[in-house]
Simulated assay, not measured.
Amino acid sequence: MKPKVLAIIPARGGSKGVPRKNIRELAGKPLIAWTIDEAKKSKYITRLILSSEDSEIIEVAKQYGCEVPFVRPMELAQDATPGIDPVLHAIQQCPDFDYVVLLQPTSPLRNVEDIDGCIELAIEQHANFCVSVTESEKSPYWMYTIKNGHLDPLINQDKIAIRRQDLPKSYVLNGAVYVAKVNALVQEKSFLNRNTKPFIMPTMRSFDIDTELDMKICESIIMNS
């Protein structure tokens, strides 16, 4: 039997790096619309909802066909609110799903193949958790802290590799897709543990908008693709 999948787009009104970024126009439509449009193409998502406390964001999401079954409580929309709390709240409001998918609106270049690929990996491998990652641009094997005025390697190695291709590949979370079995997420209260499966995405689709420069880069990529 096909599993029931709830997809949540979390979008609060307060944002520091880029004010009102969730509804800022990006290449002709609001930032949040890029995520809504791709999620609606999914062959796995049963129900797509928005979690927001902001009336303007709610109206924009509805215009683009995203369901808004509740208004997020203000105490779950603060700067210090842990990211998992609105997800757990949404699960309580919309029960009886097998999987939950978190789609942050700050990943406008992520497409339906990425969304469905991550969900598919979780289902096929019977994984409790699966998240999207991309190969890190800068290797942690070349990173240092400074102790007593001297460089101290972040990762101890017998010999420092000179060429990048001699280093093990490393990956970073790109914030684009988070998938979990609902019962496992309610228990763990995190998408990340030692059993989380990685879904690898290309760097070009892994931009996470946090600054005005990120907005310009993503706009340029969209306009020239």
Rank of each mutant, 00 (worst) to 15 (best):
M1K: 12
V5N: 02
A7I: 05
P10N: 12
R12K: 13
R12Q: 13
G14H: 14
S15T: 13
P19S: 11
P19M: 10
N22W: 08
N22H: 15
N22D: 14
I23Y: 05
I23N: 02
L26Q: 08
G28S: 07
P30G: 01
A33C: 13
A33I: 10
W34G: 06
I36F: 05
A39G: 07
A39C: 13
T46K: 02
L48C: 06
L50E: 09
S52R: 06
S52W: 04
E53A: 13
S55R: 06
I58L: 12
V60Y: 06
A61G: 05
K62Y: 10
Q63Y: 09
Y64M: 05
Y64S: 10
C66M: 06
C66E: 02
V68C: 15
P69S: 00
V71Q: 01
M74N: 12
E75I: 07
L76S: 00
L76K: 05
D79Y: 11
D79C: 04
G83A: 14
D85Y: 02
P86V: 02
P86K: 12
P86W: 01
L88Y: 05
Q92N: 13
C94P: 01
F97P: 03
F97C: 00
F97M: 11
F97Q: 06
Y99T: 04
Y99N: 03
V101S: 00
L102G: 04
L103T: 00
L103P: 02
Q104E: 12
Q104F: 10
P105T: 09
T106E: 15
R110T: 15
E113V: 03
D114R: 05
D114C: 10
I115P: 04
D116V: 03
D116P: 07
I119T: 12
E120D: 14
L121N: 07
A122H: 11
H126R: 13
A127D: 08
A127N: 11
A127I: 04
C130E: 04
K138L: 15
S139L: 08
K147Y: 02
H150M: 14
P153C: 02
P153W: 01
L154V: 13
I155Y: 08
N156V: 00
K159Q: 14
I160F: 01
A161R: 11
I162M: 15
R164L: 06
Q165W: 08
D166C: 03
D166I: 00
P168K: 12
K169W: 12
S170Q: 11
N174P: 10
N174D: 15
V177Y: 09
Y178T: 01
Y178N: 03
A180M: 00
K181V: 04
V182A: 03
V182R: 00
N183R: 03
N183F: 05
A184K: 07
V186H: 01
V186R: 10
S190F: 03
S190D: 00
N193E: 05
P198I: 06
P198Q: 10
F199I: 04
F199A: 08
I200T: 07
P202I: 11
P202L: 09
P202V: 06
T203M: 09
R205H: 10
R205V: 13
S206T: 06
S206R: 11
D210T: 13
T211L: 04
L213A: 13
E219S: 12
I222W: 00
I222H: 07
M223R: 15
S225T: 11
